[in-house]
């Protein structure tokens, strides 16, 4: 990952290789949720190159720190989603027991 910032550390562009809308759009959401972010957006400079630039401008903290927080926030969110999902699946399975386990039963018919 590349990080460009001229003088003022509050404004920076981060360039991620081998990433696309999947991460950038989710990160933009996470960054926008932070009241310390003045502006954030992302662009994909060329559609055939696996690269995405994320622009972050903040009120007073370093953009790098804010981006890190945003990532942490997103990760926390994912962990909560995963935990909730696993619990719901288990509950569903105990309520609707179906004998065969899909992972064991390799036949389609």
């Amino acid at each position: 990952m590349e990080h460009t910032s001229f003088g003022d550390q509050r404004n920076a562009t981060f360039s991620f290789a081998e990433e696309d809308h999947t991460l950038a759009n989710a990160l933009r959401f996470s960054l926008n949720q932070d009241p310390q972010v003045i502006f954030c957006g992302y662009s994909i400079p060329h559609p055939t190159k696996a690269q995405v630039n994320v622009r972050v401008q903040t009120t007073d903290k370093e953009a790098r720190v804010i981006l890190k927080d945003a990532c942490q926030g997103l990760m926390q969110m994912c962990q909560h989603i995963r935990g909730t999902f696993d619990k719901v699946v288990n509950d569903f399975r105990t309520k609707n027991p179906s004998g065969n386990h899909p992972s064991q039963d390799m036949d389609s018919d």
């Binding site: 981006l67 890190k68 990532c71």
Partner: peptide
């Protein structure tokens, strides 16, 4: 893989992506 495992794995992949960015920034 059964569909519920696919979903959990997908969430894990997004977590990994975040983790990679965090370690790059630290």
């Amino acid at each position: 893989l059964p569909p519920e495992v696919l979903f959990t794995e997908a969430v894990k992949i997004l977590e990994d992506k975040c983790e990679r960015v965090i370690s790059d920034l630290s």
